[in-house]
Simulated scan of single mutants.
Amino acid sequence: MPAEASPLRAADYSDRYDPEQDFDHWYTRLTARRVLRHLRPDDHVLEAGSATGLLTAELCGEGRRFLCLERSVSYAARARARGLPGVTVIEGMIEDFTGEEPFDHVLALNVLHELPNASAALARLLRGLRPAACCMSPCPTRTRCTGWRPGRPA
C-alpha cells in the first residue's frame, strides 16, 4: 500500500481524544519518572509522537534540548503553547523524518505500534543517535495498554 494511502498516516484522533484528560496522563507522568533517571543535564532528545507535550513538560529543563515530532497539528500547537524551555515542536510524520542531528536519546513512547512499518520508522529515528545513546520505545500489549481493560472494549 503506498504511504499516502495508509489509513494510519491520516489518523489524527486529536478531535476526539485528549491524552491529558484520559487515564493516559497517569501513565505518561509515571513513565516520565522512569525516563528522567536516564537523562542528564544538557542531553539532546528526539521525542517522536510527542502529542500535547505532557511528557516533554515533565522531562525538559536543566539545559536539555528536545526536538518533538508530532503528526497532529492541534497536538503540536498545544505542545508549542506550553512555551517549554529548550523545546522545538515540529509537525510531521515519523516516516518522513529526515533529521540527522546527533541525539543522546530517542523517545517513541506508545507510537510505533500505530505505524504500518515500525521497523523502518525506528531505523529512521535512530540515524542520528550518538554512540552509547539510548532509545526508549515501549508499546502497548494486550495486558498493558492504556485505554484497554479486559472485558471492556478499547
Score class of each variant (00 low, 15 high):
residue 3 A to I: 10
residue 3 A to C: 09
residue 4 E to S: 12
residue 5 A to K: 13
residue 8 L to N: 10
residue 8 L to Y: 08
residue 9 R to G: 04
residue 10 A to I: 00
residue 11 A to D: 07
residue 13 Y to Q: 11
residue 14 S to D: 05
residue 16 R to M: 12
residue 16 R to T: 13
residue 17 Y to M: 12
residue 19 P to V: 09
residue 21 Q to K: 15
residue 21 Q to Y: 13
residue 23 F to A: 15
residue 24 D to V: 08
residue 25 H to K: 15
residue 27 Y to N: 10
residue 28 T to D: 09
residue 33 R to K: 14
residue 33 R to W: 10
residue 33 R to Q: 14
residue 34 R to S: 13
residue 37 R to I: 07
residue 37 R to A: 15
residue 39 L to H: 12
residue 41 P to Y: 11
residue 43 D to N: 13
residue 43 D to M: 05
residue 43 D to F: 03
residue 43 D to K: 03
residue 44 H to Y: 14
residue 44 H to S: 15
residue 44 H to F: 14
residue 47 E to S: 06
residue 47 E to L: 01
residue 48 A to D: 00
residue 49 G to M: 00
residue 50 S to Q: 05
residue 50 S to N: 06
residue 51 A to T: 07
residue 52 T to I: 12
residue 54 L to T: 06
residue 54 L to I: 04
residue 61 G to Q: 11
residue 63 G to R: 07
residue 63 G to Y: 08
residue 65 R to F: 05
residue 67 L to N: 00
residue 67 L to I: 02
residue 68 C to D: 04
residue 70 E to R: 05
residue 73 V to E: 11
residue 73 V to G: 05
residue 74 S to G: 09
residue 77 A to H: 11
residue 79 A to G: 12
residue 83 G to I: 03
residue 85 P to H: 08
residue 86 G to F: 05
residue 86 G to I: 02
residue 87 V to K: 02
residue 87 V to T: 03
residue 89 V to A: 05
residue 90 I to P: 06
residue 91 E to W: 07
residue 91 E to I: 03
residue 91 E to S: 11
residue 91 E to Y: 08
residue 93 M to S: 14
residue 95 E to C: 08
residue 96 D to H: 13
residue 96 D to M: 09
residue 98 T to V: 15
residue 98 T to A: 15
residue 100 E to F: 05
residue 100 E to V: 08
residue 101 E to A: 13
residue 101 E to C: 06
residue 103 F to A: 04
residue 103 F to D: 01
residue 104 D to F: 03
residue 104 D to C: 07
residue 104 D to G: 12
residue 105 H to A: 11
residue 106 V to P: 02
residue 108 A to L: 01
residue 108 A to C: 10
residue 108 A to E: 03
residue 109 L to E: 02
residue 110 N to C: 08
residue 111 V to P: 01
residue 111 V to Y: 04
residue 114 E to V: 11
residue 116 P to T: 13
residue 117 N to E: 12
residue 119 S to W: 12
residue 120 A to L: 10
residue 120 A to M: 07
residue 121 A to V: 04
residue 122 L to K: 03
residue 123 A to K: 09
residue 123 A to E: 13
residue 124 R to K: 15
residue 125 L to N: 09
residue 126 L to K: 03
residue 126 L to Q: 08
residue 126 L to D: 07
residue 128 G to H: 04
residue 128 G to R: 02
residue 128 G to W: 00
residue 130 R to G: 00
residue 131 P to E: 02
residue 132 A to T: 02
residue 134 C to A: 08
residue 134 C to T: 10
residue 135 C to T: 01
residue 136 M to E: 07
residue 136 M to T: 09
residue 137 S to F: 05
residue 137 S to K: 00
residue 139 C to A: 13
residue 141 T to R: 12
residue 142 R to G: 14
residue 143 T to H: 12
residue 145 C to Y: 11
residue 146 T to E: 15
residue 148 W to F: 14
residue 150 P to K: 09
residue 153 P to S: 06
residue 153 P to L: 00
residue 153 P to Q: 02
